[in-house]
Design a protein around this nucleic acid. Sequence first.
DNA 1: CTGAAAGCGCTTACAG
DNA 2: CTGAAAGCGCTTACAG
Lengths: 342, 342
Amino acid sequence: MTDTAPRQKRPPTIHDVAAHAGVSRGTVSRVLQGGHNVSPASHQAVDAAIRKLGYVVNRAARSLVTRRAGSVAFLLSETHERLFQDPNLATLLRGCTTALAAHDIPLVLIAAGTEAERRRIAPYLAAHQVDGVLLFTSHRGTPMIELLQQAELPFVCCGKPHDQAGAVSYVVADDREGARTMMRHLIDSGRRRIATIAGPADGPGGLERLHGYREMLAEHGIRYNKSLVATGDYSRASGESCMRELLARVPDLDAVFVASDLMAEGALSAIERAGLSVPGDIAVGSFDDSPVATATNPPLTTMRQPWQRISDMMVRQLLAQIEGDGPASVILPTELVVRESA
Amino acid sequence: MTDTAPRQKRPPTIHDVAAHAGVSRGTVSRVLQGGHNVSPASHQAVDAAIRKLGYVVNRAARSLVTRRAGSVAFLLSETHERLFQDPNLATLLRGCTTALAAHDIPLVLIAAGTEAERRRIAPYLAAHQVDGVLLFTSHRGTPMIELLQQAELPFVCCGKPHDQAGAVSYVVADDREGARTMMRHLIDSGRRRIATIAGPADGPGGLERLHGYREMLAEHGIRYNKSLVATGDYSRASGESCMRELLARVPDLDAVFVASDLMAEGALSAIERAGLSVPGDIAVGSFDDSPVATATNPPLTTMRQPWQRISDMMVRQLLAQIEGDGPASVILPTELVVRESA
DNA sequence: CTGAAAGCGCTTACAG
DNA sequence: CTGAAAGCGCTTACAG
């Protein structure tokens, strides 16, 4: 067992490539930067040398001179429970990793769920150890935002942050329009006593989806009834208890618009337990089109969130800001996916 | 809008700290490395200067000379579906991030779910852009392992990899002993026609938990009955269908050992749908003690996986290997958590 | 289009 | 215990 074993065969450097290609190191570097101001012949020679030697740029060396970390952070400003429950977060994480990989930019995961963690990462961020930050917003997101602004670090939120001073970049699905679309679908199929299980008001999409619900009711001359509204926390369990509550309050409701698939799964259970059928007695429309949507019985009619596009846009916006662009907000449409529950 | 805005106020360097403290840069560096061979007076002066200036080490510069990336990768060698479904993966990811943060080591997330992705990251890994890798193993893990071995990059697996040539570091929960404990609990409470819903044979813990099930049956003189065994894929839906199948085959079974909480949640639905009660008619014991375990009705009696310890040990093993240690395997005990389902 | 050279911010023998 | 100095592997004006 050789301890502290030194790596013998040092990886090739730009110097080796230059020697192999018969050019200067400057020229190799220029090829690495995109090949501007390089003759085709030199370009080819360098490319060949790179391939031959299996050269990979040393990021630390590059980073030192460019003053760019060359990486981007994904801030987990969520508690563990939330992290576990939210299938969308996993999807987003995956999507961002992939989108960044296309630009050859590593994604650094940073935990910022507790106050202690936030204190710890503040200097890291302030020192620009990453070039930018992807932020999964929530009610807990706000303290992070201030920190990032002070650090003058580019960032983009997933979801619109609340009570935010100044212009902040974010990417969201069109929650209100999505809610309206689902409500239209429910109303068009003849439902009139439509309940809703909303998400927390300070959470992503919570208020907007509720607004969409109320707007559509109003536009169809259906009176808004407070008893038909319950608020969950996006968990399956909360969906189930909310549904039970709604059923107790308004036994003859004929539809429910649920703000997430996970809660809808819970609602389905409560409805079944009450001896009612879906969609026969009650139509269930939900939001997300996460993998659970097809695992339930019956499969869920739901609004598809464009997660792929959301990740892509978040990454694109962030990279643009790193290049000097100002903040921007992007709103992406959702899509009605009709299955069997409504 | 200043584009490509240069950061004006450059962050302080070791040079500034040295000037402030009235010592040489070498001495500052020594303090940064732990303060060996530094007089208490110098040490204090440097500490004060660091605090005063808000100095944070430039990792790129350090990395360039130490020839260490200073970061560690978490390889997501999973498909998206799997990633979404597995609450344990999120827990593990969180745990590893936190454990590494204590050592001031950033965790880089790398997607290696597809063949294309694996091809892409191979040079990155071979060039040692990270110092080591945390690997969430599965049947798909094997190609990654070979790649890592060729790159001579330290790595540790979560779960014991299958068909692996050579010594490989891994950390696992004691799946077999955990299964035995749960089975003992079921048998001690008088159950005799005990079914099981196993995980995939090539997945983490799949076979081991099934072995534990069979062993315990044998040790209590209960005959093994193939009809009492079903194999799911760790998803809620598969748990439900497996349970339905088992009930159809052996209507009078009086207990079921399910290899994950998520599948147990599905099993619970199937049992309820069959008009049977838990634990009255059928006792349900599961595995994980993930957040779902307390969200079901009734709450699950389950084997707690020591995720916190698993993450900690994975990180510890990896850091030791980076320092030159040889590979090692760690097996951690699970713990029976009795709730209401058994 | 190209090369020579300076410099990014650290660490680490080497002398003392 | 400490300082001066070399060097890690790149990029980027600067001349030509």
